[in-house]
């Protein structure tokens, strides 16, 4: 909540790194974290969603394979797909948030080729015309 608080004036890296540390400490950290992050990323408040995406990116860089495995499941990827798809939340979500989600997905297809479901999700969005370029 503190790492994504809409009243933060700017991204609060103390809390963001604290969230990453907590994931690394706990056995079920990645599973719990992705559920919390999916909820924040779908926030109707743009700034809360943007901060949640920054936290997600930080976790991908700092929480290792256990976290990558969890993000690389359709269970989580589907929550990101809902954000960009007009069939779900896409019409109500800002372009900024949608662009960031697509940029993250693309960056992981390059950085984590072993997480094949990320590629499946990204190329499905491309085929459906939701990712244009």
């Amino acid at each position: 909540d503190k790492a994504t608080n809409p009243s933060n004036r700017q991204e609060d890296w103390e809390y963001i790194i604290g969230f990453c540390d907590q994931i690394n400490k706990e056995l079920e950290g990645p599973q719990i974290a992705v559920r919390l992050l999916a909820h924040k990323i779908q926030s109707p408040q743009e700034w809360e969603a943007v901060q949640a995406l920054t936290v997600l990116e930080a976790c991908m860089k700092n929480c290792g394979r256990r976290f990558h495995n969890e993000v690389g499941k359709f269970r989580f990827l589907n929550e990101l797909i809902k954000v960009v798809s007009p069939k779900y939340l896409g019409d109500r979500v800002s372009e900024k948030v949608k662009t960031k989600v697509i940029e993250l997905l693309y960056s992981w297809t390059v950085a984590l080729p072993e997480e094949s479901k990320i590629k499946d999700a990204y190329y499905m969005l491309k085929r459906q015309g939701i990712v244009m370029f």
């Binding site: 359709f74 269970r75 990827l77 779900y88 499946d120 999700a121 499905m124 939701i130």
Partner: peptide, 15 residues
């Protein structure tokens, strides 16, 4: 304590 490792997943959404 023994932790249950959840390896389950769902299907990819269709948009």
């Amino acid at each position: 304590t023994v932790s249950f490792h959840d390896d389950s997943d769902e299907d990819l959404l269709n948009v």
